[in-house]
Each structure stands twice: as C-alpha cells, then as structure tokens.
Amino acid sequence: MKEYTFFPGCSSEKNASAANMEHSVQALCKILGIQLNEIDDWNCCSASIGYAGGGQLPRLAMSARNFALAQQQRGMTDLVATCAACWLAMRETAERIEHEPQVRADINIALKEADLSYEGGIKTRHLVEVLIEDFGWDALKAKVKKPLTGLKAAGYVGCQTNRPFGIAGESFENPLYLDKMIEATGATAVPYAKKVACCGGALMFTEVEKSCALVRDLLQCAVDNGAEVIVTPCPVCQLNVEVYQDKINQLFGTNFNMPVIYYSQLFVLAWGGSWEDAALHQQVVSAEALRRFA
C-alpha cells in the first residue's frame, strides 16, 4: 500500500461534476493499492479563473492554506491531485513560494490569520505521474483482466494537465502518456490531432458559443478518426466535452453523441471493476459502447 496526501478539489465532491472521476479514482486506487489521505477541511484552489477576483496573493493563499493543512496533517508526504486545475494551481503556488521570497513572506502573513504557516517543500503530483512513475507501465498492464480489445479511444489530454507544467517527460504538443494508457488497457488509441486542443475551460460559462465551437472541432476530429469514446484526465475537459454536446448539436446542427470518460474509468473497467466501480453509470452521454467490456 502506497500512501499519499490527497487534494480532491471541488469538482470531485459528492454530487459535483466530477463525482464520476472521484468514484473511479477510488476504485482504481483500491485495485492498485494506493491509499489517498484527503486533506481535512481543504479549500478551493481558486482555479485559474480566480485571477480576476482574487488577484495574486489571495489566489495563491488559497493553495497555500491547503499545503499548510497537508503539512500539519500528513507531514511532507507527496500531495496528489486529480483535477488539472487544482494540480496546476498548487504547482504554481509551490513554485512561487520557492522562487519568490516576497510572495512567500506575504503568503505567510495571510496564513497567520488562519494560524497556519507554510515555507514550501511538499511535492505536488498528478495521479497520472504516480501511476507512471511509482507503478510503471508494466504494473498497469499487469492488472488488466478484461482487455478492451477493439475499443477505439481518442485520448484528450487538454490544456492544464499538459501546460505549463505537464506530466513529467511529456511534450506539450504531443504528449504520449494518455495514448499509452489507452493502449495499456488493450484498447486502440486513434491518431488524433486535437489531443491538446482547448475546450474553452472556464470560458464555457461565459463565451459559450466560442467555446462550443472549439469543442465541436474537437469532437469532429475524434469522430473523423473513428473514435468510439474520448478519454481524458481533466474534469473541465470532461465536463465541457460531454455535457455541452446537446448545445453544440443545437448550435451547429451536428449530431454528436460521444461518450467522454476519465482514464481512471477506463482502467477500472479493464482491470475487472464493475460498471458502477468505474462510475460509468454517471455519464451524461451514455457510455453504453463500453458495456461490451463490463
């Protein structure tokens, strides 16, 4: 059993938009032997869109509080995040605490108001990095019980899992780990030009049509390349690409009905987990195409 401090983020809460991710992540960890110790009483990371309301320091302070709590509760053990935005916000905060003394000092002035302090040092990691680096491809493949042979999946890495930090060792323009994950389950990763395209992110809320146009291009590319399902590591990507398909069909006269699932769901399914373990019942666009492997 490997233990990590865990920051699930707001979308992974019960009845939140990435509840399916959280559920499948837990199932995945159980199979692999990972214990995720959630930070008690964590707060929102403020996400990238937090810049406008929060500015610099309040925004960074929010992640700093989570670090401080993590250190109090779990010492310096690696902190794992599953949400792209949370992971990015925490990495950014960690970097600025490390490299900018003024920021570190100011953050601590603010943290003091909550009787906390944090000087840096906890390593923030994406769950994907844990799987690759701490377990390795062979271990991931070895768990496969029901190879997803014949399944054509388009790996959609998106933005914030990929930039500006990215999964260690991967290219910003053509990261390969997600394709390798798909292949590790026995499925086929379709070649696909939009794997790091943007889904609109938070602008899906405000610039709906512009963002929907981005997602339309993305879906079209997946369809053109024969994908039956889109697989992603990012809750924002998952939400935007899955939930807005109706809207897109309405706006552009298209007829998309593309299931969009998390890599964790794919693994759980291939590793012999149930439909429910994989939280595939929690898809807005039905993932029935995968039922044949359940």
Partner: peptide, 9 residues
C-alpha cells in the same frame, strides 16, 4: 486569511 491577503494585495 483572504481578507489579509486582499489587504496586502
């Protein structure tokens, strides 16, 4: 904490 941070900001 947020209030303090906002003040500094």
């Amino acid at each position: 904490m947020i209030a303090k941070a906002q003040e500094l900001e």
